[in-house]
Nucleic acid binder design. Sequence first.
DNA 1: AACTCCCTACCGAACGTTCGGTTGTGTTAT
DNA 2: ATAACACAACCGAACGTTCGGTAGGGAGTT
Lengths: 186, 186
Amino acid sequence: MTRDELIESAAQVFRQKGYHGASMEDIAEVVNLRKASLYHHFSSKQEILLEILDRALQLLLEETSAIAEQDISADEKLRLMIRKYLQILAENMDLAAVLLFEYRSLERRRRARHTPSRDKFESLWRDAIAEGVKKGVFKCSDPAMAARALLGQMNWTITWYSPAGAKSISAIADDYSNLLLHGLLK
Amino acid sequence: MTRDELIESAAQVFRQKGYHGASMEDIAEVVNLRKASLYHHFSSKQEILLEILDRALQLLLEETSAIAEQDISADEKLRLMIRKYLQILAENMDLAAVLLFEYRSLERRRRARHTPSRDKFESLWRDAIAEGVKKGVFKCSDPAMAARALLGQMNWTITWYSPAGAKSISAIADDYSNLLLHGLLK
DNA sequence: AACTCCCTACCGAACGTTCGGTTGTGTTAT
DNA sequence: ATAACACAACCGAACGTTCGGTAGGGAGTT
């Protein structure tokens, strides 16, 4: 039983029941172990949660920051970042859902350790938009708020998206991009 | 101690700790009662949760549907609905946060009773956008998805908004409206 | 006024259950 | 032999819920 498998299964349980609603026995059941055995791999339930959050954020940070560093037009960059973000979200729905919805279940001290990466991630989007404004391709009075609006609509996707649904992730990404860039008005 | 005060206080605790993370004693403490006394007003913890969700949704549904029925231009209607939605969210942050983030903690049967109102609420937004498309003022290939995108960014606001922050709710509503209608591109 | 009766609101104590976590002992693979 | 891994059994604490009972105020009767 690898650490990654345990993390993945725990994320699945946490996503389904919430952190406090899920017991160590619930997690153990998924991986066919007794709950005592989990303590051979992790020191506490909180450590599992932290590892899920760190891992999920790392996935998102790595791949989107690589795009953010590219030297391409601001609107094209945003399109690519949106697509990549949604892709990772869809490919790691359990991890991502826990990252987005169980953050507050992390106790103070662990949360303090995790938060800097979160801020760094948000600034990635803020900077991408601000860059477009500076270059004269975007008009936007408050890039920080536009970034949060965009992140909000993308994050919320996880509450309704299903791989079995009619729309593929890349189709959703295109819709989001067009909506964000061109708006609703004719 | 009125039922409304209890609901409000319970929402505050649920928002802070999550449904499963909050104990009946936590709630009782806020209203200066013993936990046993709560069972004079409610039959169970689940009933409290359901009542919070119903109440929050009712607030949102009543006021936004009144706007949706008005005979005004599609873009103006959307602006008003966005403003009203965010207003109610901000004025009832505890109730709203529980509605948005603790939905899944509601057990099956109670959830089944609550869900129809949710669907009705979402269709309100979908119809508002579809109406604009039909009248030729919006261009949008998938109104249902645009509605979910909009709801996503508005809902996410509750994760970062603070009444003490720099931006007022109506300023945020204007930003969201402009972004949604005109887009980011110059 | 004095009395009984009832009702709402509340509480202390305890119930059975489940929780996260520990301990000690086996089993397996190197 | 040794280290890694898994297990059964167990612990104290906390959980949601129940129960018997108390305090106090209003209504109705005498």
